[in-house]
Design a protein around this nucleic acid. Structure first.
Lengths: 130, 130, 130, 130
DNA sequence: GTGGTCTAGACCACC
DNA sequence: GTGGTCTAGACCACA
């Protein structure tokens, strides 16, 4: 599903939240599907169960997953819609911040556009559908 | 020179470091020039002098500024080179992370490229007449 | 691990940095081991936690230790290599400065060599029986 | 007579004090000779006159130089003796500290002795009288 | 005037 | 529990 980078500066619980949202957004997890239990996920990604629990609490509060008493946790019906929007907003917000940061340093936006173009060309042509 | 966003999640001292680097990178500060004193900068951006001192300490360790005992802090000769490279690396690194984050969520890189294009068009119409 | 000399002219935080590096260099701390927590070390050497944190911050920036959020600080894998080299360079650099200082005052290097020899003889007679 | 290193971590006034003492210790300045005035020295080594004045104050307090009203500053009769002892004590004290620092890091004193030997052999054979 | 160090104490996020 | 950040205020050395 996703991997945890212990050396990253983004908190582990946030990596879990983002990982689950991304999996749902890209269609890897579908509404109604069960997601690993707190303990299962903790064992899978090798983190403290408390950390997973916190991530799941956030996901449930946002309506991405739902608890069914005694059965476990499931992807909510409108999770794909929610996650796609959430991920899109998050990425675009970060992108705008990055553009601003670049301009403050005198780096024109065209440089960023160019870098994206190179990334797309070199790494994976299968992701260029349109 | 720059402004501090107290609501940002990036630490104040880091904002100062980045702000000074950006100012040097874009040519607003030239080698040999003095930068505002610890107390002066603290008053300017309304933070505690210790916070400014922490930022300046980082800048000196990276070779961006040099301290002359009792006189103040000065932009080092090779600071522009250092800062331009540093800012460029930082921005491109963040951009690559963002591209990866987008792809994990099923957002094609073309979306990011499009968003940058729109930003450029709206900000300065002289490059792209509408 | 080491002791702090409050009367020394070298700053306390620097003594901590050097002490930790020396401990790693001589093999008293091994990679992967945790080093005392900020608060623990502060209590141990009787200084303010902020002072310890400053020292640890330096050590992390040099790659000697790594912080794991919420868990503590750990000796990095290549710390022994780093510290041995760092300590060796530092000592030899100081030694060269000292030789230069001596020569400026008309003290021949042979005097220094003699002094080292006496120190070795007095400290551990097993190498040089008197 | 000597040069000031503005980037050194040893204070400028201290460099002046040490420089004068060393010149006397090695016999470059003899008792009764005049030493440059505060202004003259300040112009010579390109530092603030206040800094030179502070250095001279220290030298006078230690009995190395003497003020003759209206005439200037002169090397005192017992300055050579004083300076030779002072320089020797200072260097040996620093050397002992360095040996201790090396041993704390697991560097044997023999390494230091070896380094001195190499320095003597490579740099200047004229300084090996005995 | 300058920067550097240290202390004390608070608040926060993370695990 | 952990480290990280920030503030407030003190003291010192240097130029």
């Amino acid at each position: 599903m996703f991997r945890i980078d212990a050396n990253s500066d983004v908190p582990v619980f946030q990596q879990i939240v983002d990982g689950v949202k991304s999996a749902i957004a890209r269609g890897a997890c579908r509404p109604g599907e069960a997601i690993p239990s707190v303990r299962g996920m903790a064992a899978e990604v090798l983190v403290n169960p408390n950390t997973v629990a916190k991530a799941y609490r956030d996901l449930e509060r946002e309506g991405v997953i739902q608890t069914q008493r005694g059965k476990g946790l499931f992807v909510s019906p409108d999770a794909p819609e929610l996650c796609r929007e959430d991920r899109r907003n998050t990425v675009l917000r970060k992108l705008n911040a990055l553009i601003a940061e670049a301009q403050a340093a005198g780096i024109p936006a065209s440089e960023l556009a160019k870098a994206i173009g190179e990334e797309r060309a070199s790494d994976h042509e299968q992701t260029e559908p349109e």
